[in-house]
Amino acid sequence: MPVDRWRPWLATGTALADCFIRAVRAATSSQELASLMEAVTADMGFRHYALIHHADLRGAPPGRVNIKHYPELITARLIDGGAYRRDPVLRACAFADAAFLWSEIDRIIALDRRDRLALEAGLALGLNEGITVPCSLLGDTLGSCTFAGTRRPGSVARLLGPAQMIGVFAFQAARRLILGPRPLVALPRLQPRQRDCVVLVGRGLSNKQIARALGLTPRTIDGYMTEARELFDAHGRTELVVSALFAGEVGLDELRQGESG
């Protein structure tokens, strides 16, 4: 697309996102956030929205985001029926790195017959196209912001940028309103050799194998492992690796076999 053609829309989309972000950061209640979501959803040309944690939301569990205006039949299937883990849109969030179009989900995950039936069921209820924004925070359940159902499905792609900004800030606001401010915690820091050991433990190596891999004695590795467990107050190897992941000391990508540390 020539530059001159997309500049007007860029200005409009950025202004919409900026206006929403300013308002949503000042929101003081879930009801106020819901009103803002309804307004911005309409402004973008969608009929429905959903801000949700990808978790069992039956019975309104505390600490979970569940703010939405969505078709009742879909809500009944995903939440009341507990089918959220199998929903193709929500499943795609785990593999998408930014906002995505529903029409492009098959580029993110392989769709089976049940997935296609779920998408067809949504289509029958007016969910002809949508944008979903994955929302993740280390140590928290995956969530998302979705806008769905539009009279102009062919024009939805240009909303990806504004939807990304709006979705991330909306979910951030929902988490703040429901959970309160996240406390600042001084997280443990691993020394380089301790970290090397934790990464290799996460790949399934024993202490003897780690000693060979690092060119150290098994006794030295035992010492590093003991220090790392004490640092995180972890009672086992699995708990140690998980604690290091949540602290940001180790990345999931490093735990794959064959990855360099």
Rank of each mutant, 00 (worst) to 15 (best):
W6V: 13
A23W: 01
G63E: 10
R176P: 11
P134H: 01
I79N: 05
R86G: 12
G82I: 02
I131W: 04
R22Y: 09
P2N: 12
Q194S: 10
E254W: 05
T226S: 15
T14G: 02
I109H: 01
D97W: 03
K208N: 13
A98C: 15
R58L: 03
T146C: 07
S155H: 04
V65R: 07
H235A: 15
I105L: 04
R229Q: 14
A17D: 07
T14L: 13
G204V: 00
Y49Q: 02
A148I: 09
C135H: 06
Q172M: 14
I52E: 07
G248F: 08
Q191S: 14
E239S: 09
A42H: 08
A99L: 07
S35N: 07
C135W: 09
L159T: 09
H54L: 14
P88T: 10
N66V: 04
Q164L: 12
G251V: 05
L51M: 06
W6E: 12
R256Q: 10
F46Q: 02
R113E: 15
G82K: 02
N128K: 13
F46T: 01
F46A: 02
S103C: 04
I109M: 00
K208T: 15
V40L: 03
L200K: 05
L73I: 11
R219E: 15
T141Q: 04
N207Q: 15
P2W: 11
D115W: 00
Y84T: 11
P61R: 11
R158I: 07
L33G: 03
L142E: 11
L127D: 00
L111N: 04
C145Y: 02
I79M: 11
G13K: 03
R86W: 01
N66H: 14
I166Q: 05
A148V: 09
G139L: 03
G143K: 07
V250Y: 08
T41C: 13
E72M: 12
S30K: 06
C197L: 11
F95I: 08
S260C: 09
V168M: 02
H54E: 07
R64Q: 13
N66R: 07
P192Q: 08
G126L: 11
G63F: 00
G167V: 08
T75E: 12
F232V: 10
R107E: 11
E32S: 10
L137H: 12
F20K: 07
T28P: 08
D87Q: 09
A213N: 11
T12Y: 07
G215F: 12
I79Y: 14
P192N: 09
A247L: 05
F171H: 15
A234N: 00
D115S: 04
D233S: 13
P188Q: 01
S260A: 14
L119V: 02
G82C: 04
L51W: 01
